[in-house]
Amino acid sequence: MNNEIIEEAYGSIFEAALIEEIASVAKLVEFKEGEVLIDIGKYIKTMPLLINGAIKIMREDFDEGELLLYFIEKGDTCAMTLACCMGDKKSEIRAVAETDGLVAMIPVHYMESWLGKYQTWRAFVFMSYDNRFNEMLAAIDNIAFMNMDKRLYHYLLETGKINSSQTINKTHQEIAYELNSSRVVVSRLLKALENEGKIKLNRNNIELLKVEE
Results as ranks from 00 to 15, higher is better:
37 L>Y: 05
32 K>S: 08
18 L>F: 06
13 I>G: 00
22 I>H: 04
11 G>E: 05
12 S>V: 07
42 K>Y: 06
34 G>D: 02
55 I>V: 15
54 A>H: 04
49 L>E: 02
5 I>P: 07
25 V>G: 04
13 I>M: 08
53 G>D: 10
50 L>E: 00
3 N>E: 13
47 M>E: 12
9 A>F: 13
19 I>F: 04
10 Y>Q: 03
14 F>D: 02
29 V>F: 07
54 A>I: 07
34 G>C: 11
31 F>S: 03
24 S>R: 15
42 K>G: 06
30 E>M: 09
45 K>D: 08
54 A>C: 14
6 I>E: 01
7 E>N: 12
41 G>K: 14
9 A>E: 00
52 N>L: 10
14 F>Y: 03
25 V>S: 05
24 S>M: 08
17 A>G: 00
46 T>Q: 11
50 L>A: 00
57 I>Q: 03
35 E>D: 11
22 I>D: 03
50 L>I: 13
12 S>P: 00
39 D>T: 12
38 I>H: 09
49 L>N: 00
25 V>I: 10
11 G>V: 12
4 E>P: 02
46 T>C: 06
39 D>S: 15
29 V>Q: 14
8 E>T: 13
47 M>P: 01
44 I>G: 01
31 F>K: 02
28 L>M: 04
31 F>G: 01
32 K>Q: 15
21 E>N: 15
12 S>N: 13
36 V>R: 15
43 Y>G: 04
42 K>M: 11
24 S>G: 01
5 I>M: 11
35 E>C: 09
54 A>Y: 08
17 A>V: 01
52 N>K: 15
16 A>E: 03
51 I>L: 12
22 I>Y: 05
42 K>I: 05
27 K>V: 11
41 G>D: 04
30 E>L: 12
31 F>C: 09
6 I>F: 07
52 N>Q: 08
32 K>A: 11
27 K>H: 13
9 A>N: 06
39 D>C: 01
54 A>F: 12
5 I>N: 09
46 T>F: 08
56 K>I: 06
30 E>G: 11
39 D>L: 06
44 I>F: 01
17 A>K: 15
5 I>G: 04
11 G>Q: 03
30 E>T: 05
54 A>G: 12
21 E>W: 14
38 I>K: 13
47 M>W: 14
23 A>Q: 08
55 I>A: 03
56 K>L: 04
3 N>F: 12
9 A>M: 08
23 A>T: 00
4 E>T: 10
26 A>K: 11
45 K>S: 07
54 A>D: 04
12 S>E: 14
8 E>C: 12
51 I>H: 05
43 Y>F: 15
41 G>L: 10
29 V>D: 10
41 G>V: 06
28 L>G: 00
49 L>W: 02
34 G>F: 15
4 E>Q: 15
49 L>D: 02
13 I>D: 00
54 A>Q: 03
42 K>C: 11
55 I>Q: 07
15 E>I: 00
33 E>A: 13
26 A>R: 11
6 I>K: 05
20 E>Q: 09
27 K>R: 14
4 E>I: 10
38 I>Y: 12
22 I>M: 06
